[in-house]
Design a protein around this nucleic acid. Structure first.
Length: 794
DNA sequence: CTTAGTAGGATTGAG
DNA sequence: TCCTACTAAG
């Protein structure tokens, strides 16, 4: 059982064999990144005798983790199951549970997803009697998440402006509520462990001592908290290998910080760097085109992919009339490739935003082309699935208030707003959870007889379910809950196509519970066998197994194991690999994938690079769009088709489209244009925006004066007119530094606001966007309304 | 307490 | 345009 290192190229082999210092591997698209990671791990355990349980490999997605596990079990079958391979979140959840008492957490904490978190924030806002109009739950939740990404505690939050001040108070109260509910949000999983590791030396030593080797995949997407986590876990052995590609960092908006990989040596000065630049995926033309786009980014680690693959065919750049025409073009192209014998599974259609998918879907349906969409609403986010899971979660952790409140009147059982409000008050008075308040309800004078009866019945229902939970196997529990609570009956009675789909979804949920139960039982059995064998083989072998696994299998009840998996795992077990289908997805969803034929639609200015209602230009954002385009192009193996539409409906309005600047950047020899190339009346963008001078002052913001989407060809829109009139030649307005209304909040219709030049006015309308675009009437400015994006509340 | 109606908002989305 | 999330009437 030895590894075939000869199948690796030089740098790949260097990375696999590297020893003695931290290592950064810059792994370009299609350069064999996963191969390097898995070979390295296999090498560590097979050749260097590192105990598998002392190797930690961290990924971002479950998919990446299971792929890695699969490859490891063929490379090192005997060890694979004991290797620690997992996502950041699952790895942290596991460590937090195992060390719950030391860290000061409940061992059976519940994990709240974003929706649960939002609900909790909402409740806190209510508790603190804050106007949810002024500071929306969304803003606060975002700020809390950002704080946790940066490892900032509530007491360390800034309070310099009114909004920050409110946020810091809500954050603090939120943390307290979460503690009481025995719940952690996703951010907590990383953040709490970082706090614990950094403050508790003995915990840090014992954990970092255990992880002799640590490997992190997609390191360019780590946020600050994740960086600190990895640093702490590697503090003892410093055998840290991080793999990634700064050119493929497309999650800046989610906290990803490319500096983590670019400046890795700042934290680990002794680190070595290896670059994997040979690409095994794409044709030369595709690589040249992708490079032509990415090379214009400043501030990237210099590197260029090369390949021994063929030159390949030219990249097609197709002009279409509008989004329907574009969709038809794609459908026709797909069909003709199909006629040439290409299966649909070898083609993919990318778009920048989900909204583009609808028209494409419609067209594919009329053309009778089978397709599947990747992404969109996730199984465990579905209403009915969340409802039933909430029952399970309450049974597992009665303090889980968010889940309890979700099901207290679902299906409707006559417990309405007022009753729930009183129940919450009672809980607040007692400083207890909602469940405890429920138990006391029969004694409380605030409730009328009817309310008491209904609450009592609900409590009795929960108690009955708790009994079933103890007695029934997991496989039967779901169905029982759906029946006893009347949930199934509710859906059956509804009897609409939607309710049918919901019934199907809950059936699927029960199926996955049964499957989970089965697998757990099988694993337990297998584990017991190993245990018995090892005992027979003598004391030397008694310890030869994974203690964590052992603990989980011995003590964990199936329900808690299931719930953990569910919250941390997006996809349910649903696969229909049987029909050959065309794949549709956003470019973001495409990272890590490859297809022989790739269509990238919507290659227009404003679409790709995307530009929302945001009035200002952030050069960082353009760079991220460039990386996104780079990711899209480098998915293609053989054929790349780029299309743009000269007109497109956006939010119901027809807009004229200008070909994306990315198209202009492609090497002319490598592309072939189809359709009339459009004569451009107005240069719609800076020819060289990356060289454009910086904005006048960093703290100034542009007013929404123009809709730069093809200004010349349309009569100015109303608001544009207004703004033009009001400002002639004065397109900037200064804003107090640090006045952070930007996350969208603050300004609402009817509010009084102050403008640096026009004084105090009243908000007449707020139309979307971040920051929001507002129309204001200033008494001092005559009859005109002013459209602006940045104002101080008066 | 449910249902219909409407205002408001609108990238990208792992765990 | 289309979807969600809250408010007023059944």
């Amino acid at each position: 059982m030895s590894l075939d290192l000869a199948s690796l190229n030089g740098p790949q082999r260097d990375a696999v064999l590297h020893d003695g210092s931290p290592l950064v591997v810059f792994a370009g698209a299609g350069s064999g990144k996963t191969r390097v990671i898995t070979f390295r791990i296999a090498h560590l355990v097979l050749e260097r005798g590192v105990p598998p349980r002392n190797v930690l490999a961290v990924t971002f997605t479950n998919k990446a983790a299971s792929e890695m596990r699969a490859r490891l079990s063929s490379l090192a079958p005997a060890f694979a199951s004991r290797l620690r391979v997992g996502t950041f979140h699952s790895t942290c959840a596991r460590i937090l549970r195992q060390n719950a008492d030391v860290i000061g957490l409940k061992r059976d904490f519940t994990i709240y997803d974003d929706q649960d978190q939002r609900a909790m924030v909402k409740r806190v806002l209510k508790d603190l009697a804050l106007d949810p109009k002024r500071v929306t739950p969304k803003i606060v939740a975002n700020r809390i998440n950002r704080a946790k990404q940066e490892v900032t505690r509530p007491e360390d939050m800034p309070t310099d402006d009114p909004i920050s001040e409110i946020v810091s108070r809500v954050y603090e109260a939120y943390e307290e509520r979460m503690r009481k509910a025995g719940a952690l949000d996703f951010g907590d999983l990383i953040y709490r462990l970082v706090l614990a590791l950094e403050s508790d030396q003995s915990l840090r030593e014992s954990l970092s001592n255990r992880f002799e080797h640590i490997l992190v995949d997609e390191f360019q997407d780590t946020n600050h908290a994740q960086f600190r986590l990895v640093r702490a876990l590697a503090s003892m052995h410093r055998n840290l290998v991080v793999v990634g590609d700064d050119d493929q960092c497309i999650y800046r908006w989610r906290g990803a910080d490319r500096r983590n990989i670019l400046d890795f040596r700042r934290a680990f000065p002794e680190a070595q760097i290896i670059k994997l630049e040979q690409n095994y995926r794409s044709t030369k033309r595709i690589l040249r085109s992708a490079y032509a786009v990415i090379r214009r980014n400043k501030d990237r680690e210099p590197k260029e992919l090369f390949t021994e693959n063929d030159e390949g065919g030219r990249i097609l750049v197709v002009r279409t009339e509008d989004e329907r025409d574009e969709a038809r073009m794609v459908a026709r192209a797909v069909q003709s490739l199909q006629e040439e014998g290409d299966p649909l599974s070898e083609m993919v259609v990318f778009y920048r935003v989900h909204a583009q998918s609808r028209v494409i879907e419609e067209t594919l349906r009329t053309a009778n082309i089978a397709y599947r969409i990747v992404g969109g609403t996730r199984f465990y986010d579905r209403l009915e699935v969340k409802d039933l899971l909430a029952y399970l979660r309450v049974l597992h952790n009665r303090d889980d208030d968010v889940s309890l409140l979700r099901i207290i009147n679902t299906p409707p059982r006559g417990i309405g707003k007022t009753t729930i409000g009183r129940l919450l008050e009672l809980a607040a008075q007692n400083g207890s959870g909602v469940f405890a308040a429920l138990e006391e309800a029969s004694e409380a004078s605030v409730f009328g007889a009817a309310a008491k009866k209904k609450l009592g019945a609900f409590l009795a229902l929960l108690q009955e379910l708790a009994r079933h939970k103890r007695e029934l196997p997991l496989s039967d529990l779901g169905g029982t809950i759906a029946d006893l609570t009347g949930y199934r009956a509710m859906l059956e009675k509804e009897n609409t196509p939607e309710s049918d789909a919901r019934l199907q979804n809950i059936a699927e949920l029960f199926g996955s519970m049964a499957l989970f139960d089965e697998e757990l039982t099988a694993r337990r059995k297998a584990h017991e066998q190993v245990l018995a064998q090892n005992l027979e083989r003598g004391p030397l072998f008694a310890d030869n197994l994974d203690r964590d696994e052992a603990a989980l299998l011995a003590e964990g009840d199936p329900l808690s194991a299931f719930l953990e998996g569910v919250t941390l795992q997006e996809e349910a077990t649903q696969k229909d690999a049987l029909t050959d289908r065309l794949t549709l997805m956003t470019v973001h969803a495409a990272k890590g994938l490859e297809f022989p034929t790739v269509f990238v639609t919507g290659m227009e200015e404003q679409m790709f690079p995307f530009k929302g209602t945001d009035p200002w230009e952030d050069p960082e954002e353009l760079e991220e769009e460039r990386r996104l385009a780079y990711v899209a192009f480098t998915r293609a193996e053989q054929r790349l088709v780029l299309s743009y539409a000269t007109r497109r409906r956006v939010f119901g309005q027809l807009k004229n489209g200008v070909p994306s600047r990315f198209l202009d950047e492609l090497p002319q020899d490598d592309i072939e244009q189809l359709g009339q190339p459009r004569r451009r009346a107005v240069p719609a963008y800076q020819p060289d925006p990356w060289d454009a001078p910086a904005r006048p002052t960093p703290s100034s913001f542009e007013l929404v004066t123009t809709d730069s989407w093809d200004v010349a060809q349309r009569a100015p829109r109303k608001e544009q007119q207004l703004a033009d009139d009001a400002f002639e030649g004065d397109s900037y307005v200064d804003v107090t530094e640090g006045n952070d209304l930007y996350m969208g909040g603050g300004i609402r219709k009817g509010m009084r606001v102050r403008h640096a030049r026009f004084g105090v006015g009243k908000v007449l309308a707020v139309s979307g966007g971040v920051p929001p675009r507002v129309e204001v009437r200033f008494p001092g400015v005559g009859d005109k309304n002013i459209v602006a994006t940045y104002l101080e509340p008066a």
